[in-house]
Amino acid sequence: MSNLHELQGRRGRIITDKDAREISRVEELSYDLKISEVMTRNVKTVSPDMPMNAVLEILRVNRISGVPVLEHGDLVGILSIEDLVRCMEKNELHFPVSAYMSRNIVSVNAYDSVVKAIETFSTQRKGRLPVVDEAGKLVGIITKGDITRGVLNALQRDYHEEELRRYRASHLFEDITSDRTSLILRYNIKPRDYLNGGQASSHIKRALLRLGANPQLARQCGIAIYEAEMNLIIHTTHGGIIRVQIEPHRILMQTTDDGPGIEDVQKALTPGWSTASQEVRDMGFGAGMGLVNIQRCVDRMELESAPGKGTRLTMEIILRPEERFKETEENGTVA
């Protein structure tokens, strides 16, 4: 399988596109990850009047190579193992921390990206950087080891979550053989549930991306189904259903409810025509542009409705050859 090829490629030191993507992902992560996510919390600290031999003990017991110095909660210095060595050479272990600590403090902000810490490490000769919050209070400490560990963890997390999901889902149509395979997603929509409005659409868009849809296609479907979902929430009497049927060559989306129905379907399709309440308009919807928007996003839209019976909105997108979901060659060719 393709995995084997990749392994051989790597042994042969050929950098594949996949490798290149992973390299840039590490760079990306150094921007995405915040210092607060990778730093060490619960930092050991010392006070300026503490004798150096007590610090020696703290470093030894905790197996660390430096500590921030706090006075009344404020960061006033850093004491590293090098300072301790200087002190031992002079045989002054009974001296206070204040005599040996470095007062030149270079700190980083907890909300900064990890890349900021990397930059600071490369310009300053420091083994560790104290991390402060917006008020300047010490909240952690960061070393190069913390960064490596943080990035590796994030890479693994990333890979295991989204990449793996995408990898699995994108092979769905390839892994299953049938004369005509389709995936159906259903969502129950409650009336006037504005707080969750768009949640189903968000799941649908994500599902399409995981299945391997290109971003433009996922966006088009997302916009159409979101407008339709909001229409359903705004107008339905008892609630309704969103049904999305995904096939390798097309996407069919439908919203259905059992009331109240539309008096004049032709009128409802007129741009700017709306029966929405002020409440709905205050949310940024109900300007009578929803159906017009949907029409622009799909290849076919059909609105069927009868007053007192219900409404069904059908939206169909026919995928262009390059947009189609990959399926196994054994599958029956669809008409």
Binding site: G197, G198, G222
Partner: peptide, 22 residues
């Protein structure tokens, strides 16, 4: 896609809209 949205609207639909419209 890839725009910043300036708005006076503060409800949750602003975020959903942003998500749909990239």
């Amino acid at each position: 896609p890839d725009a910043v949205l300036l708005t006076g609207l503060c409800n949750i639909q602003v975020v959903r809209t942003a998500q749909m419209a990239d």
